[in-house]
Design a protein around this nucleic acid. Sequence first.
RNA 1: CGGGAUGUAGCCUAGCGGCUAAGGCGCCUGCUUUGGGAGCAGGAGAUCGGAGGUUCAAAUCCUCUCAUCCCGACCA
Length: 476
Amino acid sequence: MASKITPRATDYSQWYIDIVLEAQLADYSPVKGCMVIRPRGYALWEKMRDILDRKFKETGHSNAYFPLLIPESFMKKEAEHVEGFAPECAVVTIGGNEPLEEPYVIRPTSETIIWSMYKKWIQSYRDLPILINQWANVLRWEKRTRLFLRTTEFLWQEGHTAHETKEEALEEALKMLMVYKSFVEEYMAVPVITGLKTQSEKFAGAVNTYTIEAMMQDGKALQAGTSHDLGQNFAKAFDVTYQTREGKLEHVWATSWGMTTRLIGALVMVHSDDKGLVLPPKLAPTELAIVPIYKNENKAAVLEFARQVRDDLKDRFAIDLYDDDQSSPGFKFAQTELLGVPLRLEIGQKEIEKGELVLARRDTGAKTGVPKTALADTVKSQLEEIQNNLFHRALAFRKEHTREVKDYETLLALMNGDGGFADAGWCGDAACEKKIKADTKASIRVLPLGREDGRHATCVVCGKKAHSDAIIARAY
RNA sequence: CGGGAUGUAGCCUAGCGGCUAAGGCGCCUGCUUUGGGAGCAGGAGAUCGGAGGUUCAAAUCCUCUCAUCCCGACCA
């Protein structure tokens, strides 16, 4: 049978959609722009959520829950915030058949309702810091949607913290950025660049936005997590003050940070291939698939052997035994590959006789013979190798598709041609940033952290003295 | 919000004025099979997206409408 997946080279967009649908991560819903996250997709989200949640707790945060509905007037209190979010808000105007006195906005993000509460909860420096996170759904009326990458409703977590000082808030924002980086790199095996967003790309209402940016297999950038230094913007909008250690009254300093189900889209686009999904072992709901291969005359013996192997390993690994009778081994092989199971064990008469089972890797396709006695250790080490290989493969891909660019002609050729990341200097002038966007549809994704001294002396657009380095790319 | 495309069985598609809407995949039953997406036989499953119109006759032509996808402008 022909593959269900459109090859990447034929149509990258369609390839992505095919993978998401065929691997049963999600399905289109009856509501425009919304999607149903199916069990296989939700299992990924649960794993990601659990790992991050643990990291948040380890860094001192607590979970809470704030309402879905926000009084419309709240959204209007912070000037930039309302301007940024008004176009994508859905508003509830009727309740119980009666027009509402004041309409409610369905949260596109929760800063306003949270800061209205923080005003009640904060009086003195003794009440600080407040370190709260919530796992929730949010709604943004998007003009154009894509499975996982941009849907009208999506799941996320949003951390909202309040601090005594500017420095402490900045430290928090950067700390959480690093939590995201370590999660995405260690668990998702997706290398990211951390950095500062330009003023035009920052969150509506923030002083500064920091993000992690990843490169997809088509060379486009994807923002995989954000952390905002909110300064005193929301404290001022909601008049949240505290009595300082010196007895003075001052506005509180704030951060917010979030990551979303979009990350599942990143996971798909970074690792998968034309055969289907490829999952990093640390997030794969099934780590090992066992496919028994039998004929009528040896069916009972092979199945028994396979079940024994499963039972031996089941306490150490998440295993799926493909012991149904209806489909052929070839079909099962293809199925495990479509679903992205990292390792597949093939057990037939030959293996039983030799005492050596065939272990197939999803990432490379390599098959190796493994003595039954060494199985558990080999599975463990191969899972680690796959995790490692996926990260390094993605990192190598990013390096291959990142060019240091010194002059504007080269930037134009690159962004309008092969794509990828351009590493260039930028003078800090919004006009130069705008020009890049107008000429290439690419944008400054991030001003990388840890490179404040700068690799580039001059702005790639105007040639004046560079203010910082910039990663430029087309983006999702 | 502009541009493009598509709506016929769970999925993909044929039919593009004329008899009872056709095929493939999938599904169900039975048998045979099983080392890279199995075979045979039988079976279930469709108010042709919706509304109006033209016509002796509409899945097919016209108008309107709804929905979805893709590509652009805006965004996690």
